[in-house]
């Protein structure tokens, strides 16, 4: 159950799969995403409510064929330039979009976790989204006849989460902003988790969000595995990095140089962090 992240990705993530790396602003599994880039996975169908920097990097690195999402920006900063380049110019590959609203994608994950064929919401009223995404349909309520919007259940081949803690049996605890992490985890065929800490006892309150060991496929101990996103109780979101990303990702060459230096030429998250720190120290 507890294994090196490199081995977990090599064993479980295959070209062409549908992958959901969830975590809403908080607990984004950056280390796992970087390892997927290093191992050169291709043709992935990526799912995330908010693609964030991690999918910007994976898309720019050429890992993705399709993207299911509901909001694709750099929060508070602006565009995800690599995502835009793929959609607007087809670089490095054209990207097939399956676009939703947050409420729609949340319903799709919840339906997946519940093994229902579709999720329902009173949503998408008056929007053009249904015209560009044929997955957005409706059913008539059997009691009142009201039209209710539907979205097909999501079943990622693999969901990857980052969490605060796991115990030795493989129970995983996450807290703070949890997004749709639990739903994405229970909707998936396999669940990989990176954690800040492995402990003897989670010491969790009865209502805490725990993913029990029998739904977890593999756990990797990766301190700072969510950086530059954050893990509440461990380190903060590096907002300055998110601001910097705008310039790094704006242009293809700068992005590729960054990716080569900090991701491709580092073996793991610790080396990635050392590489960033070295670079920061060189800038006067």
């Amino acid at each position: 159950m507890l294994m090196d992240l490199k081995d977990a990705i090599a064993q479980h993530v295959e070209d062409g799969q549908t992958l959901a790396l969830e975590g809403f602003t908080h607990l984004i599994p950056f280390a796992a995403g970087h390892e997927i880039i290093r191992q050169g996975r291709r043709d992935l169908h990526l799912i995330r409510m908010t693609p964030d920097l991690i999918y910007d990097q994976m898309i720019g690195a050429g890992c993705a064929r399709a993207l299911t999402f509901s909001w694709g920006g750099n929060p508070g900063v602006g565009s995800l330039h690599r995502l835009r380049d793929a959609v607007e110019k087809g670089w490095p590959h054209p990207l097939e979009l399956h676009e939703h609203s947050h409420a729609g994608l949340a319903a799709a994950y919840t339906a997946g976790a519940s093994h229902l064929p579709f999720g329902m919401l009173r949503g998408y009223l008056g929007t053009d989204l249904a015209q560009v995404n044929p997955d957005i349909r409706s059913v008539a309520c059997p009691y009142t006849g009201e039209a209710i919007a539907t979205v097909p259940a999501l079943h990622p081949d693999i969901t990857i989460l980052h969490a605060q803690k796991a115990d030795r049996r493989g129970n995983v605890l996450l807290h703070g902003i949890v997004g749709a992490g639990k739903e994405a985890a229970l909707a998936a065929r396999k669940l990989l988790v990176t954690v800040e800490e492995v402990v003897e006892d989670l010491g969790a309150a009865p209502n805490a969000i725990i993913l029990p060991h029998w739904v977890v496929t593999a756990i990797s101990h990766v301190p700072w595995g969510a950086y530059p996103s954050y893990a509440q109780g461990y380190y903060e979101r590096d907002n300055a990095f998110y601001l910097d990303w705008d310039d790094i990702a704006r242009d293809r060459e700068t992005f590729l140089a960054w990716l080569d230096l900090h991701v491709m030429h580092t073996g793991d998250q610790a080396a990635f962090l050392r590489s960033l720190a070295r670079c920061a120290a060189e800038v006067p």
């Binding site: 602003t25 908080h26 929060p75 508070g76 902003i177 992490g181 639990k182 969000i209 979101r237």
Partner: peptide
């Protein structure tokens, strides 16, 4: 002010933090 919609400051100063699907179903909808 948070830079992102999910900065730690928002969670740390909240009365409660709930899963995202609940925000849209139990609170907004």
């Amino acid at each position: 002010l948070p830079l992102s919609i999910g900065d730690g400051e928002l969670a740390a100063t909240a009365t409660s933090v709930i899963p995202l699907p609940e925000i849209f179903s139990y609170w907004l909808q």
